[in-house]
Design a protein around this nucleic acid. Sequence first.
DNA 1: CCTATCATGTAATCCGTTACATGATTAT
DNA 2: ATAATCATGTAACGGATTACATGATAGG
Lengths: 168, 168
Amino acid sequence: MQEIRLTPTSYIVLGLLEFAGECTPYGLKQLVSSSVGNFWTLHHAQLYTEPERLTKAGLVSEKRERGGRRRRLYEITPKGREALDEWRGEATGSLGELREPALLKLFFGADPGALARAQLPAHRAKLAEYEAIRDGMPELVPDGPRLALEAGISHERRSIEFWEELAG
Amino acid sequence: MQEIRLTPTSYIVLGLLEFAGECTPYGLKQLVSSSVGNFWTLHHAQLYTEPERLTKAGLVSEKRERGGRRRRLYEITPKGREALDEWRGEATGSLGELREPALLKLFFGADPGALARAQLPAHRAKLAEYEAIRDGMPELVPDGPRLALEAGISHERRSIEFWEELAG
DNA sequence: CCTATCATGTAATCCGTTACATGATTAT
DNA sequence: ATAATCATGTAACGGATTACATGATAGG
């Protein structure tokens, strides 16, 4: 049992395991790409290493299948739930950063019109994707994902407005 | 002379050196925190290691003071300008990610009201800071930083609207 | 004079990314 | 059958973060 630092990646894995129950790394990958991956990308390799890290800290437990591929099955432990609850409970006042590569280029003198014309289709596509997800969402989806999706939608709308002003 | 991968950090250093001319790591730190650092944070250690990396690739040149502290002085080279221009010239269509820690918590079930009440003051403070910078901006500031600042302002406004809906 | 804080730098760690690899399934 | 894609994993690398450290300057 070892002390580890918990990163956003850790909480994503814990949160998904809480939601889904027992799960393989590949299962986690599927979950990510259909949910939180829309605004917080993880690489598939992290879904192998992170549960292992969490296992060392006792926050998840690991089993292996007997036959066949002997895949790893992970499950959140009570201690893991506790850590997740604590994290959820601390209402953070810290802000993320924009970190838009396009804004960086703009800042350092790239041509605004050209940038805008490259950014607009991408933002519009992302917006369409979000709206499709929202429209296909079953009623029973909890508030969290629903609200996060709304945040994504309004963010894309704002970005589109911004770049539209700069497009020639 | 060595091949290195250029990251956003690299372009920030190159861009600042282009703007400021010869500069020490500490000078870069000052520049960052009064400009691009508003939406793209760097740790001060990176401003020591990154110019060194760029030196290996011939994109910046390094001199050392003779007397006193023998501080390092960096300057962008023609090859560095070239790399910077090329980067600025490619109008990227790739999107950054939101990566707001608060959104992540929201997604995984944190209490929206509590989160909103923690996020609102922070976003309002950031907005006020941006507006103060804009209002104090001399006329001669180039369009890039000015537009990036506008993006930051509209982003903060939108975030405030979003969280206001969730605050009880 | 003493102690904060600013200025300046190095070193270690660690997480995230990239690259490499191969076994299963499905489609043609 | 064979190619393509899905599923599953490991290993190496490198950049970002954190921690450590010390010299200068200013304030009390």
